[in-house]
Simulated scan of single mutants.
Amino acid sequence: MKQTSGISVRLLAHYDSHARTLPWRSAPGANAADPYRVWLSEIMLQQTTVAAVKPYFEKFTVRWPDVMALADADEAELMAAWAGLGYYARARNLLACARIVAKEHGGDFPANEAALRVLPGIGAYTAAAIAAIAFGKRAVVVDANVERVVARLFAIGTPLPQARTEIRTATDRITPDMRAGDFAQAMMDLGATVCTVRNPLCALCPLNADCAAYAAGDPTGFPVKPARKARPERHGYVWWMQNDGHVWLIRRPGKGLLGGMRALPTSAWDKEPDYAPPIAGQWNRVAAPIVHVFTHFALNLQVEWLHIERDCMTGQAGEWWPIDAMNDAGLPTLFAKAAWAVMEEIA
């Protein structure tokens, strides 16, 4: 068995000198952090970069400074504030979790992984991260960065996702009893800044003497990834209806993709969607379609626009939104792309 006792010592010493300064972090050695800020950041960081999350995190914590304030948030306002961050089920789970913590836990997050995992939107990784970083508990924290670092340290040749059990076991072996939160964040930092996907900076790595992949001269060969499957493609239409400086927006159904968000009216998204505009008329087509990639499919969306009389939408579910305030509508990125495409064409 590879000797692992010195790995955490060397990594923590490196972290003490090189830790990233992030708005949700405590300084190295603090051994605890505000659970609300840790939880909020971890939810936002799921499949999203640190650079993208920073402005959202700062905006959220000004508007909703603690979990009790967030629990009282209006869902539509929260979804609008989340717009552009993507993976919108996270926002709905965020509100559901905040309300449970406020109602059932008096505003205090539980400190152990099992109790945390019961809460909406908190899986194994997030529960471990909160327990370790916010409460100083020993927990095995494995995100994509940690996964890559550990797979290289031990030259784990089993392809993902099958390798994850082996990677977690190896991470458990090197996680210290003390400063587990700092260790988790140090591993994340190492993966984000040194042990990167491409062109890792092995010469600067505090663990290069411990790394089996480095010794073998093939750090980028790990983790071993399965062959990538082709992403399915779907098509659809989106419609911009304008009157006197306002555009007609709808609210998407609460469940499903982009649920509860303001949006432009759209067709179903399918291989060959039906063409059924909200109203009849001589629709104008934006020359270039909008292409947007979701996790499980790519969407090719044809954008059309029409000037209409306001009473055409009387009795319909939706609202007239001022075009000069589109940035405040909280549109998901897909519909924001469509809006800007129309505005550029008809300006």
Rank of each mutant, 00 (worst) to 15 (best):
A71I: 05
D72W: 12
D72P: 07
D72V: 05
D72M: 14
A73V: 00
A73Q: 03
A76C: 11
A76S: 13
A76T: 12
E77C: 11
A83T: 05
A83H: 07
A83G: 03
G84I: 09
Y87V: 08
Y87W: 06
Y88N: 15
Y88T: 15
A89L: 03
A89M: 05
R90Y: 11
R90N: 13
L94P: 14
L95E: 08
L95Q: 07
L95K: 00
A96D: 08
A96C: 06
A96E: 14
C97Q: 03
A98R: 09
A98C: 13
A98T: 14
R99Y: 10
R99T: 08
I100A: 10
I100D: 10
I100T: 10
I100L: 11
I100Q: 14
I100P: 08
V101A: 01
A102E: 14
E104W: 12
E104C: 12
H105C: 10
H105E: 01
G107W: 02
D108Y: 03
F109K: 01
F109H: 02
P110K: 01
P110I: 04
A111Q: 15
N112G: 02
N112V: 08
A114L: 12
A114P: 11
A115N: 10
A115T: 14
A115M: 08
A115P: 08
L116Q: 01
L116R: 00
V118N: 09
V118A: 14
V118K: 15
L119T: 14
P120A: 05
I122D: 00
I122L: 00
G123N: 13
G123M: 08
A124N: 15
A124F: 15
Y125R: 03
Y125F: 12
T126M: 04
T126K: 05
A128C: 10
A128P: 04
A129E: 05
A129C: 08
A129M: 08
A131N: 02
A131V: 00
A131M: 01
A132I: 07
A132G: 04
I133W: 07
I133H: 07
I133V: 14
I133R: 07
A134M: 06
F135I: 05
G136F: 09
K137M: 11
K137Q: 12
R138D: 09
R138L: 03
R138I: 04
R138V: 01
A139N: 02
A139L: 07
V140T: 04
V140Y: 11
V141L: 09
V141W: 12
D143C: 04
D143M: 09
D143K: 09
A144H: 15
N145P: 09
N145V: 02
V146P: 05
E147K: 15
E147N: 11
E147F: 15
E147R: 15
V149Y: 11
V149D: 01
V150L: 00
V150A: 01
A151L: 03
A151C: 01
A151Q: 00
R152W: 10
L153Y: 11
F154Y: 09
A155Y: 14
A155R: 13
A155G: 13
I156T: 06
I156Q: 06
